[in-house]
């Protein structure tokens, strides 16, 4: 045997140095995990999209997308959400410059825009339900409410989460840990934006066409 396979690694670092390195590794590890979580979330939406596409035409004599979707409404929602994605980008920029208050400000704007988006969606749903287009009216509407609603639920959860992170930022400032948290929530936010683009296209645009 030419060489020993297992010899004990001697890293020769001081303990303190090792601690800092470990901390750094851990944050990186969590970000990687979050990316993989996003893959699973993507598949979640993919399955919902598949179901929607299958059931799109199954209106059972009830209203279809063309009759239900209101162009100004969903275009406004799209603008709001896209803008919030932009402001969350600005937040990340502020964080990289170490400007905590600016970071908090942009996060707050992002969250507000997100809340507006959810508000629009809720009123859209309420209006449709009021017209008798409920989730139990037809397979098409079941798929519509579930797909769009799941996205809305994601945004709403994101709002709670973002608020929690803002509180932590106020308490602790920008540290390795809070930095990772902001990074992760902005990934999440951009992801929801990307999903919305597909919703906008597949559900709304193709619906009114």
């Amino acid at each position: 045997m030419a060489h020993t396979a297992v010899h004990q690694a001697s890293r020769g670092q001081t303990a303190a140095h090792a601690h800092a390195a470990e901390h750094h590794d851990q944050e990186g590890l969590k970000i990687l995990g979050f990316w993989i979580f996003l893959v699973t979330d993507c598949l979640l939406f993919g399955t919902l999209f598949a179901a929607y596409v299958v059931l799109r035409t199954h209106t059972d004599g009830g209203p279809n997308g063309k009759e239900l979707f209101e162009v100004p409404g969903f275009v406004a929602e799209t603008f709001i959400l896209l803008t919030s994605s932009f402001t969350s980008g600005l937040a990340a920029l502020a964080m990289n410059q170490g400007k905590r208050n600016q970071l908090l400000g942009w996060l707050a704007v992002t969250a507000l825009l997100g809340a507006c988006f959810v508000g629009f969606e809720v009123s859209e749903f309420a209006k449709m339900a009021g017209e008798g287009a409920t989730i139990s009216r037809s397979a098409f509407l079941s798929a519509f409410f579930t797909l769009v609603g799941t996205h809305g639920l994601h945004v709403s959860l994101g709002l709670v989460w973002m608020t929690a992170i803002m509180l932590q930022l106020r308490r602790r400032g920008i540290t390795a840990v809070t930095r990772r948290k902001v990074f992760v929530i902005s990934l999440y936010w951009h992801f929801l934006d990307a999903v919305w683009i597909f919703l906008f296209t597949v559900v709304y645009l193709m619906g009114v066409m």
Partner: peptide, 10 residues
């Protein structure tokens, strides 16, 4: 809802 039902387009 009517994803998998026999009625309403499921």
């Amino acid at each position: 809802a009517h994803f998998f039902t026999m009625t309403a387009g499921g």
